[in-house]
Nucleic acid binder design. Structure first.
Lengths: 258, 258
DNA sequence: GCTTGACCCTGACGTAGCGTGAGGGTCTAA
DNA sequence: TTAGACCCTCACGCTACGTCAGGGTCAAGC
């Protein structure tokens, strides 16, 4: 394998399974630009180009926009083990997500066989008990750092049943008080709501991971934007998810101002 | 839950996590068209609309084009258990695919830790020993029926180590003879190459699943179109994947003509 | 009744990531 | 020289929305 070998665009397309058009496109946007063969300007791809294409295709497979793939590859252009670790984690995350959905579908299959007719709200309940760490992963993918996820995972695995009881009790209490504040007409950016949002944030920090204000805001957006959370909070009180989201935002602004 | 409740487009967007624009779009293309509130024409979504949206989002999550989602939902508009079974299978398939990729990445991590520097071709070798059943699933998704996959899986689980040795020996022998024919200048649509393709097909039928000519042609296309197979055959002899693909096609045409 | 903010409507341009085709150049074997 | 395979650039079109424009409707507060 000492041979100095280069490939035409057609050969690379055949090897990799992407089209010539795709390779042109990647060249045009600058994510994979091969050398050019004088005097006709034909593209020639080297082995390192193939390596790079392989990484591109992997991240594309997992749904990353090309612009983001470009950023990833710039950050760690040559360090193969960095990519491998990242890819491994991403794959594991994706599988875990799909496994959760499978569990939901299986539960519904059971319910369906028992001829239980669930309402739309009840259907969301099948997602199981609400645990922030189930969803913080998504917040991280959107806004945060993977250290928080690992930290959360590390802590959670050490908890006893008593720990879970206490955690749940505190979580329920915060929810209840949020609903009460909403019911009493408290402003989402008032002191009371902000203090509750702060308690909410510290609860996560206490039990799961260090939840900075950025992450917290991301979580708040997710409570409103994701039907699982929204329904969860709607069950407690109508419009609670939005109230909490707004309180979280106000709380973050308060913290930023001080 | 006896309440006759309907939702505005904004409420549905909040509940479901999709945008108002998306709901407008779905209404426009006819995949999810709610009722309209006189006299202002505001959209009102019923519970059954929410159910339908949930199915749409599920299939969208798995990458189905909306047009195909529409077809799926037309075919089984009300039979919830049909959807559940299909969704379950799709999810399982996706997870299995990702698990295979994980295995590849893990193997590369091992190689990386041992400071083994792999060439692009060798990297494909990390996919492990060539087993048609590893890839027949993809052929099935493209061209075949899932019965073959189940049959393959059923057989393979019964094989002993001796079975694997024999299987591998035969497979290697076929590859070697294909390479020899190619090296001797045999035409891909000549008798010799077609006979070898036929042996190849019967080998799969013997050891994995009933490989009809359609499936076989699909496999041949995949050997050329997928870098994993192409590289595998390139290692044995240059251009072998294409030679085999052409021989498979010729063989299928021969069988069709008789 | 008026004002205001939130939400509703339709219409339309633009984007990401290519697929497809037009029109023409280059390479290689016969 | 010819023909077929492959190369090039250019450009329109597609899917599934994102974003914005411009204007109507609703409901609470003054």
């Amino acid at each position: 394998m000492e041979e100095n070998h280069s490939y035409s665009v057609g050969q690379v397309a055949a090897l990799s399974g992407v089209t010539v058009r795709t390779l042109h496109h990647y060249d045009q946007i600058g994510i994979l630009s091969p050398g050019r063969q004088p005097p006709n300007g034909y593209r020639r791809y080297e082995d390192c180009d193939l390596d790079k294409l392989r990484q591109i295709l992997f991240y594309r497979e997992l749904g990353f926009p090309l612009e983001e793939v470009a950023t990833i590859l710039e950050d760690a252009p040559a360090n193969q083990s960095v990519h491998l670790r990242r890819q491994h984690r991403l794959l594991r995350d994706r599988i875990a997500r799909l496994e959760r959905i499978v569990a939901v579908v299986e539960k519904e299959m059971e319910a369906s066989q028992m001829n239980i007719s669930l309402t739309p709200e009840e259907r969301f309940e099948v997602f199981g008990d609400f645990k922030p760490e189930d969803y913080a992963e998504e917040a991280e993918q959107r806004w945060g750092d993977t250290d928080a996820y690992r930290e959360s995972h590390r802590r959670v695995t050490t908890y006893t049943n008593d720990d879970w009881q206490e955690l749940k009790s505190q979580s329920t209490d915060i929810d209840r008080r949020l609903a009460a504040a909403l019911g009493a007409g408290a402003a989402a950016d008032g002191e009371e709501a902000m203090d509750l949002a702060e308690e909410h944030r510290m609860h996560i920090t206490r039990w799961f991971y260090d939840c900075g204000y950025d992450i917290h805001v991301g979580l708040g957006d997710m409570y409103v934007g994701d039907p699982r959370f929204t329904a969860r909070y709607e069950e407690i009180a109508p419009a609670l998810a939005q109230f909490l989201r707004d309180a979280i935002r106000a709380n973050a602004r308060r913290a930023e101002a001080s």
